[in-house]
Structure formats: C-alpha cells, structure tokens
Design a protein around this nucleic acid. Sequence first.
DNA 1: CCTGATTGTTACGGCTCCGTTCCAGTTATC
DNA 2: GATAACTGGAACGGAGCCGTAACAATCAGG
Lengths: 114, 114
Amino acid sequence: MLHPLSTSQALRLWHDVGLAQVKDEEADLSVRQMTILLSIYLEPPPHTVRGLAAKLNVSKPVITRALDAMGKLGLVTRRRDDKDLRNVLIQRTVKGALYLERLGDTVSSVSKAI
Amino acid sequence: MLHPLSTSQALRLWHDVGLAQVKDEEADLSVRQMTILLSIYLEPPPHTVRGLAAKLNVSKPVITRALDAMGKLGLVTRRRDDKDLRNVLIQRTVKGALYLERLGDTVSSVSKAI
DNA sequence: CCTGATTGTTACGGCTCCGTTCCAGTTATC
DNA sequence: GATAACTGGAACGGAGCCGTAACAATCAGG
C-alpha cells in the first residue's frame, strides 16, 4: 500500500527524478518508450505489438519503432510466436531488467529526500 | 514528509503515470523540457538561461530551444533583465501553472491506486 | 574609450521520432 | 483451394531535438 502523494509532493518528485536523469545523461528513452518498456516488464506476458498498441492507444508502427530502438539498446527482444506465426512476442532481457531496476532505485532514493 | 517509495512501487507509479499521459495525448514534453519547466515553477526566481543550463548540466542552446518550444505552447515567457540587458529572465504563466497542477494531480491520483 | 569577458541566440548538419499509407506473410472461413 | 481478415513491418515525407560552432549585444576593467 502506497501512501498517497500530494500534488506538490508529486511535482517535487517529478522534478528531482527528471533532474537526476538529465544530469546523469541516462534518460535516453522518450515517455512513450519508457511506458512501453514498463508495460512489458510489469504486466504479465505475452506481449504483442497489437496488444501494446491497443493498450497505449497508439498506432502499431509506434510500437514497432520503439521496439527497434529499445532492441538496439538490448532492453528488449522479439521472437515469433510458434502457435501463430503472425504474432511477435516481445520478451524481457537482463539488461532491460537492470535498466528498470536502476530507474526504480533512483525514484525510490529521490523520494526519501522529499 | 513523504513516505519513501519501494523500487517496485516506483516503477508501478512511473508506468501508470506514463500510461495516463500517453493515452490522453497530452502535450508531449520531453524529459528535458519537463525538468526545465518544473525547475522554473518549483525553485525561487530569478531564472536565467545560464543558470538553468548549469543546473541541468546541459548546453545553453538546449535551454534556449526548450524555452522556444514551451513559449510557443504558452507555458513560459521571457523578458530581458533591466539591470543587465544581457540576461533573460524566464517567467511563469497561468497556463504553465495549470499544466503542472494537472500533472501533479495525475501523479497524485495515480498514487492512490497503488 | 577599448579590449576582453559574458549573455543569450542563431545556423548548420545530423539523427530520431512521428503519422499515414501500403505491403508481405499467416490464419480463418467458406 | 479461394477469399477475407488479421498480424507486424517498411516506406515516405515532415517535424522536432541535438551538439557544435559561430554570432550580436552588453557589461567590466584598464
């Protein structure tokens, strides 16, 4: 159970985390990409392009291109579905898990200073 | 005083807020732009290009371009400093305040569902 | 004054992401 | 089998942001 944040606490948190990311030059992902990555890692598989596009209310090419970019960074992998060769199953990677764990740690750490 | 977030709570929070932003097709500011905007509104004036660049550890043109973009959206205004005409003072706007208040409400609201 | 430092801005080439449209491959239905 | 429906991806032109290198305007110190 999370203690609810006030509006001003939320803004302070957003500012401090953003500042940490910008200064550390680690924020390579856009908000869209980050949300896609978090969906893949926080929600139960399987994840498909179609499903992610519907969930985020964006077009399929947006998902495809985001997967291209994050795949190039090693944060995500694609594999065809053996059951239905039209589908592409998006899979997690160790690097992606570490990336998000580091993000979570940053947020958690910043929250302790507010 | 803010109750510290765990790593997994932080990731869930980030995901849900990102999802709300992407779905609502809100004005899409980059992480850099958002951090600049938050700095202007959360920290005491005066704000200058030079000062923001130093604080965020980015080059001055990054600040100038971000101010151009956000100024076009009405989130921020610039005015020359009468004391030193080299300086440009960045000022808040009603629209910018409302924009951030809405962001804070989104984060706060999402936090109550975790 | 005049030279040098400081401020913010512009210009350039390059890269990424976007929205739309169209396409190849696979499956379902008859 | 033939046709329609579905999947993910490619192609196109357009827009935004980036880093670097310049620039005009302004101030400070001799």
